[in-house]
Design a protein around this nucleic acid. Structure first.
Lengths: 126, 126
DNA sequence: CAAACATATGAACAGTTATTCATGTGTTCC
DNA sequence: GGAACACATGAATAACTGTTCATATGTTTG
């Protein structure tokens, strides 16, 4: 993402298609979800759109782990992992529980693996 | 994504957990997919991680449309849409057919909607 | 309480990315 | 052929993002 497009600052750049396909476009417009909903959806997928986070999610699907375990597993610094876990938690993809000094992370729900699997299916077929 | 982490430039920052959880971590390591596979998976989700592209995909799920239709529907310039369609095509999420001057785009396969739906389910429950 | 440990966090920096603008390519129709 | 149209594309730019580094917070143990 970059530049945010504000609604109705219309580039208004009509073409002949627009007239011909007017009804189709209007019909599609009527069926589209709220703009905000699609924005949130993109936000969710953005979280999945980073190798480190995908690797963390995949790892947590196998077993709950503490921050330092994940860092060792992925061969990255504790800080980097901690930052990413925050992103994942904010997106409600992982949850954590504290046991003394150690904080264990795990997947928040079963959708996560489903989404990962669906994506995996796609790349395996192309 | 940013800085690319090269394998084995190890931050090597062991902690006591690593010794205690050694076996769990090793077990998880054994079950993880290839690093490259997870990288590709993240690349795929990155494509879904932009509001404009999500809106295009959602629109195309309703009906095939030409570039200019999409631009009008989303109230964006033809150029911006064209750039994003290229990204979507490279990721094999959309396909195109030419009919004279007009190029019609449509979803490439049924996974796309499945992935979108799965994501939608997640955000609706949180 | 102090030291050690596990984790969290803020600032900074470099790499990435989405849009815009200008222009190029491909097609139709006169 | 040339004008008009639909689309593609390259360069430039502003905004965003992931990692690092330094440091803060929370917990246990002696």
């Amino acid at each position: 993402m970059a530049r945010s497009y504000t609604k109705n600052d219309a580039p208004v750049e009509r073409c002949d298609c627009d007239i011909i396909h007017q009804d189709v476009v209007d019909q599609v417009r009527g069926k589209m979800p709220q703009e905000e909903t699609l924005y949130n959806l993109a936000e969710l997928f953005k979280v999945f759109g980073d190798p480190t986070r995908v690797r963390i999610l995949w790892a947590l699907d196998e077993s709950e782990m503490c921050v330092c375990d994940i860092a060792n597993l992925l061969n990255m610094t504790q800080s980097a992992i901690s930052h990413q876990l925050r992103v994942l938690k904010r997106a409600a993809l992982v949850k954590s529980r504290r046991d003394g000094k150690v904080v264990y992370y795990s997947l928040d729900d079963e959708h996560v693996q489903q989404i990962l699997d669906q994506g995996m299916t796609h790349i395996n077929e192309k």
